[in-house]
């Protein structure tokens, strides 16, 4: 059997385990909540994670469409980029998939050269998602700094405006992207 087929058969179990890995990056009490609460509005972290991982797994087993990977990886990284994670911990869950997949294989599979070659290829796809995760993480952090900078600039601008120092420009604000 080819690796793709094997993984497709076990897809649900793999996604469940992957989900648990993400949840377990939080303290135990929080992890329990993230796993237990199924309402996506009561549990946005869990809901977003579930949705994202399912699509990512489909892409790993399918087309590896970059836009789709980007748009479904974004929400989960966006959350982790504001939470109490170091950058490496924020994106670590992507690479944890390698271990999860290996645990799904039988010992004999590791003697099968064809499966090993496919596993190597699959790892490269995971790496690609990991790199995309890094890009998204940086994009989110830059957005946070931009929000902070905009708030500061707007505040300063308003102060000058109120002081009558820039009266010739009524109604205009600092042009920031």
């Amino acid at each position: 059997m080819r690796l793709d087929e094997l993984l497709t058969q076990k897809k649900t179990a793999i996604i469940d385990k992957w989900f648990d890995v993400v949840a377990d990056t939080y303290p135990a009490d929080t992890a329990g909540f993230i796993k237990r609460q199924k309402d996506p509005f009561a549990n946005p972290v869990g809901g977003t994670t579930q949705k994202s991982l399912t699509v990512l797994m489909d892409e790993l087993l399918g087309e590896m469409n970059h836009d789709k990977i980007d748009s479904f990886l974004d929400p989960i990284i966006r959350i982790r980029a504001v939470q109490d994670f170091t950058p490496s911990r924020a994106i670590s869950f992507v690479f944890s998939l390698k271990k999860i997949i290996r645990n799904q294989l039988n010992k004999s599979d590791f003697n099968d050269h064809r499966i090993l070659a496919e596993l190597f290829e699959f790892d490269l796809k995971i790496d690609l998602i990991g790199l995309t995760a890094f890009d998204i993480y940086m994009k989110c952090r830059e957005k946070i700094y931009q929000i902070k900078a905009n708030e500061e600039k707007n505040r300063t601008f308003s102060a000058f405006e109120r002081a009558g120092l820039i009266k010739e420009l009524p109604g205009s604000g600092p042009e920031l992207a």
């Binding site: 303290p27 009490d29 929080t30 909540f33 993230i34 549990n43 972290v45 504001v82 939470q83 109490d84």
Partner: peptide, 17 residues
């Protein structure tokens, strides 16, 4: 109340329960 706080849900920090 534990999982009803937006800060707990958002930060994932149990001390925000």
């Amino acid at each position: 109340c534990a999982d009803k706080c937006h800060f707990f849900i958002g930060t994932g920090d149990p001390k925000n329960m």
